[in-house]
Structures are given as C-alpha cells and as structure tokens.
C-alpha cells in the first residue's frame, strides 16, 4: 500500500507522462446566458493515464458533466469551448485534438476509440428496439467490417457483463435498471475503445445493484484493458472503484491524486470538506 502511495507521489499532479490516453490543457467552457457568461470549466489541466480508472468528483454544478460532454464533443449551445486543447492518443492511431476533429474523422473515433456510458435509468436505450438491434446499430455504424461476427459478438458482450444471451431479444422495458445499465456498459465496450467516459453510471440505482455495476466496471478494466473516466458525485463510489481522483469545484480542478492520498490526506480545504460531509450510515463493513 505504501508503495502505491509512493508511486502516486511520483506521478502526482497533472504532469502528462508519455503514456497518457488523454491530455487536457487549459480547457475553458462557457455558457452564454442573457445575464452574461457563466464559466462552467475554468483552465482545466488533466491527464488520463492508459489503463487507469480516473474518478471525477464534485458537487452538482461543479462542472464535471460539462467536462464530460465537452470531451465527447456533445456540448450543445449555449455551451461553448472557449479555450484549451484535448489531445487524445488512441492505440495504433495518430494523436488528435478532440476539440478540432470534425465530421467523418470524429465519427470514426467515436465508439471505436472513445465511448460514452450514460446514466442508464435515463432514456439512453431506444424503447422500441430490441437490445440486440441496439448493439447492431452501434456496431454497424462505427465498425461495418464486423457485420459477419455480430451473431457471436453480441452474446459474448452480454455475458461479459453477466447477462444471458436471451437479454438480446428483450426490449428495454423488460429490463430492470441494473440490467439496463449493464446493457449500456456492454454497448460502450463493444468496439474495444481506448477510453470510456462514464457519467454517473450508478446514480439512481439501489445499493446492491450499484455494487454489482461497480464490480463490472472494475472488470471492464481487467478484462478489456479499457481506460475509464468515472464521473460521480458519490465519494463512496470513488473510494471503492477508482485509482486516482480529480476533485472539481466551481469549474476548477482543486486536487488530483491517488485515491488513498486524496481520502487520507486531502491537500485542498475543499476536498477536506467534501470528505467530511459524507454521511456515514450504520456499521462499518470490514
């Protein structure tokens, strides 16, 4: 344990070592409103290392979801990226600035290199399509070459998240919240992306299902070597799942560090407050 703390100290901060999947530099995101501009993300520097699970923590309105949609290029007006660069290093391809790619180039990257795991209880699945058709939709759109292997691929993906092949023939309304979230996870990793951005993947699920989903997320990294960026307001989720945590407050990054260091020895007063404000329920497990 002390070894990992030492190691984290070496890597601490935002210094981009050579094996980063994503390097965010000086990112500013602004929403224009009738009462002037609101800066949702301010001068954010952050590097995501290959193979790690990085948590983004912060309260509502801290800018963590805005960060996610900006990285995914899903930011909608009045939101606008006003400064910064996001260098993405997909394995076996040349690095690209995610904020500059457009059209076909972006479409090719999406899903095969960079994918998104939304909050499952929301309307993320098409209610009138069978689960397997939603897989086909994504796979054929982003990797048409895989058409012939679909019949074998879909059941394999489902089993990797602990679902039976028959789930493929079901409609979303036949699935529980936890099953929907696992279907979304299977879709997110269908094309073996380099980086998955998960936005509040367990919010609105009850605790036991949340635990299963967190287990499966950890498995994704072990089994697929996926790099995960997990956005959650729940400090408990970060403590259980991630390797490093980045804490956001009012659009700024106040602290980044190894999960143990952040929880045991928070450097920023806001992080301290955030950790102290966690309600502790009942007895301690273990």
């Amino acid at each position: 344990m002390s070894e990992s703390v030492k190691e984290s100290a070496k890597h601490k901060g935002t210094s981009a070592d050579s094996d980063s999947v994503l390097e965010i530099k000086g990112l500013d995101v602004t929403y224009s409103t009738s009462r002037g501009d609101v800066q949702a993300v301010r001068g954010l520097d952050l590097a995501v290392r290959r193979g790690e699970i990085l948590g983004i923590a912060g309260e509502s309105g801290s800018g963590k979801s805005t960060l996610a949609v900006a990285l995914l290029r899903l930011l909608k007006p009045p939101g606008k990226v006003t400064a910064g660069s996001v260098m993405f290093h997909p394995a076996g391809r040349s690095p690209v600035d995610l904020l500059k790619v457009n059209g076909e180039e972006l479409r090719v990257l999406r899903w095969s290199a960079l994918s998104y795991l939304p909050q499952g209880s929301m309307s993320s699945l098409n209610p009138v399509m069978r689960v397997q058709d939603q897989f086909k939709d994504v796979i054929l759109e982003h990797a048409p070459a895989r058409k012939d292997s679909l019949g074998e691929l879909i059941p394999r993906l489902l089993s990797q998240v602990g679902l039976e092949p028959r789930v493929g023939r079901m409609y979303p309304h036949e699935l529980s919240g936890g099953m929907k979230q696992r279907v979304l996870m299977a879709i997110a990793v269908a094309l073996e992306p380099d980086l998955v951005i998960a936005d509040e993947p367990t919010t609105a699920l009850d605790v036991t299902i949340q635990r299963v989903i967190l287990q499966s997320l950890a498995d994704l990294r072990t089994d697929f070597g996926v790099t995960l960026m997990v956005i959650s307001h729940d400090m408990g989720v970060h403590a259980q799942l991630v390797d490093r945590v980045a804490v956001m407050y009012e659009g700024r990054l106040v602290e980044v560090g190894d999960v143990r260091q952040v929880f045991k020895d928070p450097q920023d007063p806001y992080t301290q407050q955030l950790i102290e404000s966690i309600p502790r329920v009942g007895r301690r497990s273990s």
Partner: peptide
Amino acid sequence: SIPQPDPD
C-alpha cells in the same frame, strides 16, 4: 453494499 468512502 453502501460504498464506504474509504479506499482501504
């Protein structure tokens, strides 16, 4: 199953 806010 409540995630404890303690990485240890």
